[in-house]
Nucleic acid binder design. Structure first.
Lengths: 221, 221
DNA sequence: AGGTCAATATTGTCTAACAAGTACACATGC
DNA sequence: GCATGTGTACTTGTTAGACAATATTGACCT
């Protein structure tokens, strides 16, 4: 009787819904999520809520110390730096491999076209297609485990974005232009150049993000 | 009253013990691990055993379909290829970054010395220091998330080894020599050369592993 | 004001039970 | 003999309630 699409178990449904609420900013970083509260909110037993929370803790979205309520993970500038360093490692090698064959993923093209189309939209709407663009580069490697690792990393990147919500990190045109340059370099089999462009692109974004998080932490304190 | 070192919870103790038994080959791939059986074996409640099994499923050591007993994951040649491709991506960028500064991690040196010392030992004893060598390269990047990802990947590499147990995949001297060459290239800041050496090193190991797994699968069928 | 201690709240784990789904074996029909 | 269908047994999924262990918080005392 349960729906075949989307949800197969109660726990998975809870995980999916909590993820959405966290990414949408409905549950801001630092919010405590007690097991009993969650169980009551979703009308499930405590062990079920516990399982869902533990899953989210494992994926990094929630943080928990022993005998304390799980909280939505609060990221500082050091975390952002680490996250961007990690994604840079994976993406750098990805673009090198793609450049070695000159194959430009169709999905990356399409994602960048979406970004260009959103030229004057609100900054927050750029996040999704931007993530899609970068994920397309990694997914083009056709490695299930690499894609899975990057997907998990994407969750933490998304979580970063909820911290800075309204701030425009980079102008839309610049992002789209840099992406296009990256694709061109891949297409012309310039591995070293593509890796360099990507490193600059991510390094710049990381620096802005780190500065912003430092600012927030200072204000909050 | 609980020991501060090693184990903090019953679930974690179960996870630790099961991991050891799987890596030691005591529980070979394909073995079904029912929740009730595990609960009885460890003298814990079923929900506790369930939590431990779910953790191992998440880390890839166990595989489970809905309403079926979890089994120790059986890897085929395609899995081995994917695992080695994934580690190659991370390690390749790692050695490139290390070569850009010319910094050779001390831990990598020590691990390779261990391998050299084991020249005429049983092949299985080479696995641990070899994993330590490669992990040292990644850990030298000083990125918590990158190290965590690689640690998880190391578990699957270990699981690969349990499939081929007694077979000598590569001679000890060759491995140590290739490792040394890699360290020399990092030291001389030859990023491209180091990446190339690593790709060859892993590619060769992957091919041997894939062939072996194909052979096993054919015999088992 | 600072430190100690107790009350509180939360998680960690267990027992017991029912519901739901899958796999296997058996019987049946062709 | 073989394919098909059915039913049973086994396993997991989820719930409920309870007790133990621990971290936090506030009150109390010095």
């Amino acid at each position: 009787m349960s729906a075949r699409l989307g949800v197969v178990s109660v726990v998975q449904a809870m995980i999916y819904d909590l993820r959405s609420r966290i990414f949408d900013g409905e549950i801001p970083p630092g919010t405590p999520l007690g097991e009993v509260d969650m169980a009551a909110h979703y009308g499930v037993a405590r062990p079920t809520a516990k399982a869902a929370l533990e899953n989210l803790v494992a994926s990094g979205l929630l943080t928990r110390n022993a005998h304390q309520s799980a909280r939505v993970t609060v990221l500082d500038s050091a975390d952002a730096r680490d996250i961007y360093q990690t994604r840079a490692i994976i993406e750098a090698e990805a673009v090198r491999l793609l450049a070695s064959t000159g194959h430009v993923p169709q999905a990356a093209h399409e994602a960048n076209a979406q970004i260009t189309a959103l030229a004057d939209a609100s900054p927050a709407q750029i996040i999704e297609p931007d993530l899609k663009f970068h994920a397309a580069l990694v997914n083009a490697l056709d490695s299930a485990r690499t894609s899975a690792i990057y997907a998990q990393l994407s969750d933490e990147i998304r979580l970063c974005m909820t911290h800075v919500q309204d701030a425009t990190l980079l102008s839309t045109e610049n992002i789209a232009a840099e992406h296009q340059r990256l694709l061109d370099q891949i297409n012309s089999r310039d591995a070293q150049g593509a890796a360099s462009t990507l490193a600059d692109h991510l390094g710049r974004a990381s620096k802005k993000l780190e500065a912003h998080l430092d600012l927030i932490q200072q204000n909050g304190k």
